[in-house]
Design a protein around this nucleic acid. Structure first.
Length: 289
DNA sequence: AGGCAGGTGGCCA
DNA sequence: TGGCCACCTGCC
């Protein structure tokens, strides 16, 4: 197995190791690990693409694909390189919201990945009532057992068609627990509905969210995560226990349930609420560790 | 040893 | 609508 040449990730800009770690391993994606050969390198997989990412001395980002790999456009899309994240961030209400500003100053240049929708949906079904290491383990178990081995020890996510032919019991063997029946049911549905992802991508936020929430195991939080991290819809505002805690404290929302807090977030932060969420989320986690 | 974790669905008033 | 509680599993 050989790697291609390192190259610059265009339109990305510089980013600190701390923020890169938050971006790749902070709960947006569950498919990145430090490279075995060098802990300063991150290795990740999406679709059939294996890639590594590292810093230049000036904190510019470099990446490389496997030798012969040419999926540069897919990598750019994955990292959101076609969007101006400085501008998006500047559009958040940080001038009037000191807590938001503090979060943005703590994790400068943090952005939102745009991951393949199917894998994102799968990951966040697995995420319910689990912590990051366990979620990663589930993704790994399923990919190992039913995906394609791309290089030694690295497996692609198998896709809904394959998962549709897998029994619930086999998924339980992958430590999915009660989530196995949701994955089975969704796989059955989506294997027959090839244009589901395209529809979600093309619909507006509200309609796309309703469509997702018709799937078993998909509530508000999972739907928001899928739309934010897998469809680039930045108005999505996922409210998990971290954000709930942070929002209650910062904005004095005692006794508000997560649905109300999600609404508050979308109103308060505006059309890029999901980006604000990511800043607050990162800081909340950091403070609690 | 029992409670809880980056939720959701079902049941009950 | 609003409030519980079971659901797998692993970790404290």
């Amino acid at each position: 197995m050989e790697w291609g040449e390192w190259q610059e990730l265009p339109q990305f800009g510089s980013i600190s190791p701390k923020v890169l770690s938050e971006l790749l391993d902070g709960g947006q994606s569950f498919r990145w690990e430090p490279a075995v050969t060098d802990q300063r390198i991150w290795q990740g997989v999406f679709q059939d693409i294996v890639l590594q990412v590292r810093h230049q001395p000036d904190f510019q980002l470099n990446y490389r694909l496997l030798a012969g790999g040419a999926e540069h456009e897919a990598v750019r899309t994955y990292f959101g390189c076609e969007r101006n994240w400085d501008l998006l961030s500047d559009n958040l209400p940080w001038r009037s919201d000191h807590e938001l500003k503090a979060s943005m100053d703590t994790f400068p240049k943090l952005r939102i990945l745009k991951q393949p929708l199917g894998e994102t949906l799968f990951s966040f079904i697995c995420s319910t009532a689990k912590q990051i290491p366990q979620i990663k383990q589930c993704c790994l178990n399923v990919s190992k057992r039913f995906g394609k081995e791309l290089i030694s020890g690295v497996y692609s996510w198998p896709g809904w068609e394959t998962l549709a032919s897998v029994t619930e019991m086999e998924l339980r063997d992958c430590k999915l627990g009660y989530r196995a029946k949701y994955i089975s049911a969704i796989a059955q549905t989506l294997a027959r509905e090839q244009d589901f992802e395209t529809k979600i991508q093309n619909k507006g936020f509200d309609e796309a969210k309703s469509m997702l929430m018709e799937l078993p195991g998909v509530g508000e939080k999972v739907a928001d995560c899928v739309l934010l991290f897998g469809a680039g819809k930045l108005e999505a505002f996922p409210v998990d226990t971290w954000i709930l805690k942070a929002m209650k404290r910062i904005y004095n929302l005692e006794n508000w349930d997560s649905g109300k807090v999600a609404h508050f977030g979308r109103v308060h932060f505006g059309k890029y609420a999901g980006l604000a969420q990511q800043f607050l989320f990162a800081r909340e986690r950091m403070l609690s560790i």
